[in-house]
Computed example of a mutant assay.
Amino acid sequence: MERLNGYKHLILGNHDRGHSLAWWLNVGFDEVSEHPIIYKNFFFLSHEPMYMNKHMPYVNVHGHIHGQKYAGVNYFNVCVEHWDYTPLTFEQIRDAVVPSEEQA
């Protein structure tokens, strides 16, 4: 954990609940959430894909789906297997899901 750059926020998933929140903080996470969170009024961050309807103004950034990419315009799968085990920035995710003319 100490070799990873940036602020590390863990959203607990199905394999993470065997430890206490304090344990994860001691491992090196800056924050630990038991539930999904909204970041910058655009990103809906969760461990696994959550239901998103076309009226929701968020993109669900999630993991959990390891073997395939989860399809849908309101979803972005950040499982490390899909990104050559390289972290992505929120700007990279935004740029991938928002057409450039809408970003201006």
Rank of each mutant, 00 (worst) to 15 (best):
M1A: 15
R3E: 14
N5T: 11
Y7N: 12
H9D: 02
H9R: 09
L10H: 01
L10P: 00
I11R: 03
I11A: 04
N14V: 09
H15M: 02
H19L: 07
S20P: 01
W23N: 08
W24F: 05
W24H: 13
N26K: 04
N26Y: 02
F29P: 00
E34P: 00
E34D: 10
H35N: 14
H35M: 14
P36T: 01
P36C: 02
Y39H: 13
F42Y: 09
F44L: 13
S46C: 03
S46H: 03
H47D: 03
P49W: 05
P49R: 05
P49C: 12
Y51A: 03
N53L: 09
H55S: 09
H55E: 11
H55G: 06
P57L: 12
P57N: 11
V59H: 02
N60D: 15
N60F: 15
V61C: 14
V61L: 07
G63M: 08
I65S: 11
I65L: 13
H66Y: 09
Y70M: 02
V73Y: 06
V73T: 12
V78N: 04
C79D: 13
E81N: 10
H82G: 10
W83C: 01
W83T: 01
Y85F: 08
T86I: 11
P87L: 10
P87D: 09
P87E: 06
P87K: 05
L88V: 05
T89H: 07
Q92P: 00
R94E: 13
D95F: 08
V97D: 09
V97S: 09
V98N: 01
V98L: 03
P99K: 12
S100I: 10
Q103T: 11
A104Q: 15
A104E: 15
